[in-house]
Design a protein around this nucleic acid. Structure first.
Length: 158
DNA sequence: GCCAACGTTGGC
DNA sequence: GCCAACGTTGGC
């Protein structure tokens, strides 16, 4: 079974890789995804897949660390919680519509791998995050892209 | 705050 | 099913 790799965006003011590291078991559910393409990518994730944890809407933006998929897609309960900002009246128990995965912290980069530095790395040509106008919060990356970004981040822990 | 690039919604 | 209007994302 081949391992697959992904990039997931989060606004660090809401949830950062440092927040993930502080969670019990360093694990959290990735809730609140409300885009079908992103959801479909999450539904394709398998236990053990690698995740580049990207900080968006920050200064600067970039990949902040590495996480690991530890639980495959299951219904996102926030879609059925009226009090949640992610509430979706069209989500039902039979048809949950939205799903999430659990990810576990694996590493925080000593220094953020900035979007600018990603752009400068020729090995990362074609990476979806680098495409103009890309807004997708969950995107696949290749094994070599994943390895190149991890090398740029020089994580002390693994 | 601006705006490009989408995705979604709803009238027809 | 089309598509205009609208809303959102996210870099700058």
């Amino acid at each position: 079974m081949a391992r697959h790799y992904w990039l997931m965006k989060s606004e660090p003011s809401i949830f950062s890789v440092q927040d993930l590291a502080k969670k019990p078991r360093r694990t959290a559910s990735w809730d609140g995804v409300r885009n079908y393409q992103a959801r479909n990518h999450m539904m394709a994730m398998k236990k053990g897949d690698g995740v580049l944890f990207y900080h968006s809407s920050d200064d600067p933006v970039g990949v902040a660390g590495i996480a690991l998929v530890v639980k495959e897609a299951y219904p996102d309960h926030t879609a059925r919680d009226r009090k949640s900002e992610y509430y979706d009246p069209k989500a039902t128990e039979e048809k949950p519509r939205w799903f999430m995965v659990d990810v576990r912290w694996e590493a925080t980069f000593p220094d953020l791998v900035t979007l600018d530095s990603l752009r400068r790395n020729p090995k990362l040509r074609g990476m979806l995050i680098l495409r103009k106008g890309n807004r997708l919060s969950v995107t696949p990356v290749t094994a070599s892209q994943f390895a190149a970004v991890r090398a740029m981040g020089k994580p002390s822990a693994a």
